[in-house]
Amino acid sequence: MTWGEFNKLSLDKKINKLYQDGTFIMSIRYYEYKVNLYLFGNFYLEVFVNHKHACIEKILLLDTNHSRMKFYSDQIKLPAIFNTQP
């Protein structure tokens, strides 16, 4: 499944598909969210969980240019294609 195909699914279907076929990598805290990083096929997804409301609010393709990459790379070794250091 491509990102485009996955992204067209409803949030409920994305959640089901991700929990069935995805691989949990790690979690970070980011403002009011707990962000779970998953490997799904050949791409990484961020699952934004609002822990105060105990719900998943959104699932996004990992943005390798976002400042959140620092939180991930401080804790795990991501593949070289995600290395944002010059």
Rank of each mutant, 00 (worst) to 15 (best):
S73K: 10
N65L: 11
L11M: 06
I56A: 02
I59S: 00
K13R: 05
L37Q: 13
I81N: 11
T64W: 09
G41R: 13
Q75K: 13
E57W: 05
D12N: 08
L62M: 06
G22W: 02
Y38P: 03
P86F: 13
A54Y: 06
I25H: 01
Y44S: 03
I25T: 07
I56E: 03
D12C: 05
S27V: 02
Y38E: 04
T23Q: 14
G4K: 06
E46G: 03
F71H: 14
M69C: 05
I76Q: 09
P86N: 15
Y44T: 09
D63H: 03
D74L: 13
Y44M: 06
I15A: 01
Y31S: 09
N42T: 13
V49C: 09
I76C: 08
A80T: 15
F24N: 14
N16I: 10
K52C: 07
M1W: 06
L78P: 02
A80Q: 08
S10L: 07
D74I: 03
K14N: 06
F43G: 00
F48T: 03
M69A: 02
G4E: 07
F48V: 00
H51T: 10
P86Y: 14
M1A: 09
Q85V: 11
L9P: 00
Q85L: 05
L39K: 15
D21I: 01
H53R: 03
A80C: 08
K8Q: 08
P79V: 04
L11Q: 11
S10N: 08
P86V: 12
D63E: 09
Y33I: 04
T84L: 15
Y72E: 02
D74H: 11
Q85K: 10
